[in-house]
Amino acid sequence: MTDGFDLGIIVRSVPFLWDGLQLTFLLTAIAVAGGLVGGTLLALCRLSSFAPLSFAAGAYVNFFRSMPLILVIFWFYFLVPLVVGRPVGGFYSVLIAFTMFEAAYYCEIVRAGIQSVRKGQIYAGQALGLTYRQNMLYVVLPQALRNMVPILLTQGIILFQDTSLVYVVGLHDFLVSADIVANRDNRLIEMYATVAAVYFVLCLLGSLGVRKLQRKYAL
């Protein structure tokens, strides 16, 4: 089927692939933001002294962490239109799936971050007369966040790779765009090699950046 490696097909499909890559970035950005907010709230619940709340948050986290992401994507792809009562398109279903799934992982990261803040800091905040909210917002979370930055970013890189799983519901992300060209022009080698190279370079740069940051920001 092949007659040499055709660079032309890669060059010609750059605009199409760029559209796909933008969707990949968009999905990653929204899922990171949503997952971080959800994960922080979950972590606060999990660390709460009110037992039912911490139990519920723990159950949520263990539930999502035991499931394959593909199954979660299928679940929401099936459930969301059913709950809303009309077709909503793959994008929103996938977005909800990623956000809820990632929240479970971010919860554990944020929890570890909060627990890494020394107890004395919390007592000092309380001694100053700060409320729980103020203490969390101005004392604990800023320090926790600083400890967590490297691992949060690493999780972001993993998520960036995981967004390729939207393939199973056919959203036009980077991989699916390349897949379309690959099958249309029968250029599997060129397109898959390009996808692998682009992901590799982006993720490697990301993880090297994280390592650099880690050395600079270590408390």
């Binding site: 790779q161 995981d162 390729s164 393939y167 991989l175 897949d179 898959y192 996808v195 992901y199 993880s207």
Partner: peptide, 15 residues
């Protein structure tokens, strides 16, 4: 570690 698992799957299977 830096190539998505799904892409690796396609590389093994198709490429």
């Amino acid at each position: 570690r830096n190539i998505p698992l799904l892409v690796q799957m396609f590389l093994w299977y198709f490429v």
